[in-house]
């Protein structure tokens, strides 16, 4: 089922391929929680983060180590050959000779695609500028599958839908599952028309509003994202918008009992800490699920048959 050499964008995944990754991740969960494994023993994963990252970098590292493999790290770009002016293409060719797979995060869009053209080993895109971040989408889908239901799903994507790369590829992936999608954002941060048109053309029912109360009673999943202060020239305008999307336990009283709240993290103040102890909060589960999903991808790309 899974015949990819690289993981670059969600668009390259069919629903069957996503399902096979989710299924494998589920079977690997005990190992993600600490059960010993030597599936990738002797294999080396290179982590090339040209931009800061906490969760993505550490969960890839955890995933590799939980499978018995080891990691090598570029460290900060300033301290490496990149600072001497080496091209990304050369860096990739060199490190491809050291490792069995490469994880890359880079500020330029399309950098992971470039890496895949020069790398002798599989490349996993961990974020290329405002471009793609497919492993985030896969872990989001896994979270929905585990904590709610991927079939007949009604989901609200809330916050910065214009610039937020995670919501774009999540919306695309959800369209493969026939989800009903509510897009909740301030008018200035609406999802780009081209993406909405693409969703509609796939038969996805898309509803757009700036008022979360309109949809809160119907949805199964509430996917919150951070609204970045720097998107607003006027600080007062930012305060107003940010306040209107601040999730509280009182607000959740209107929702279905089974509603789950997700967030790619880091959150700032769009979810108040009081929500953490409600039965709806799933964002810390979500960040944990990054480990089994990345374990599944590493195993699929690097092989390793020994259990």
């Amino acid at each position: 089922m899974f015949k990819k050499r690289h993981v670059l964008t969600m668009r390259e995944f069919s629903r069957d391929e996503i399902d096979s990754v989710i299924e494998l991740a589920s079977s690997l969960e005990p190992y993600a929680r600490g059960k010993k494994s030597s599936m990738l023993e002797g294999k080396i994963l290179a982590l090339l983060f040209f931009e800061p990252s906490t969760r993505t970098r550490m969960s890839f590292e955890t995933a590799m180590k939980r499978l018995g493999g080891s990691t090598i790290n570029l460290g900060s770009a300033e301290a490496s050959s990149v600072a001497k002016g080496e091209s990304l293409a050369d860096t990739i060719r060199v490190i491809g000779g050291y490792a069995d797979a490469i994880v890359i995060r880079h500020p330029k869009e399309g950098s992971a695609r470039l890496a895949s053209e020069f790398s002798p080993v599989p490349v996993l895109n961990a974020g290329d500028g405002a471009g793609h971040h497919p492993t985030q989408t896969l872990l989001d889908l896994y979270t929905i599958k585990k904590e709610s239901n991927l079939d007949d799903l009604s989901i609200a994507l809330v916050g910065d839908l214009k610039y937020g790369r995670t919501v774009h590829s999540l919306a695309y992936a959800l369209s493969l599952y026939g989800a009903d999608i509510s897009l909740v954002s301030p008018p200035a941060l609406r999802m780009p028309e081209a993406i909405k048109a693409d969703l509609s053309s796939k038969g996805t029912h898309v509803y757009e509003t700036s008022d979360l109360t309109e949809v809160i009673e119907q949805i199964d999943v509430l996917y919150m994202t951070r609204i970045q202060r720097e998107r607003f020239p006027d600080p007062l305008e930012y305060q107003k918008v940010a306040r209107s999307y601040r999730l509280t336990p009182e607000f959740l009283a209107e929702a279905k009992k089974t509603l789950i709240v997700m967030h790619p993290l880091p959150r700032v103040d769009e979810i108040t800490p009081a929500v953490d102890s409600t039965p709806n909060a799933r964002y810390f589960h979500q960040s944990f699920y990054g480990v089994p999903i990345r374990m599944a991808l590493l195993k699929l790309l690097m092989g390793g048959d020994n259990d």
Binding site: S87, H106, E109, G110, S111, E117, A130
Partner: peptide
């Protein structure tokens, strides 16, 4: 046309 695209850098592509 995207100034942040990797193809608009000095990479050998």
């Amino acid at each position: 046309q995207n100034p942040s695209c990797i193809s608009n850098t000095s990479e050998p592509i």
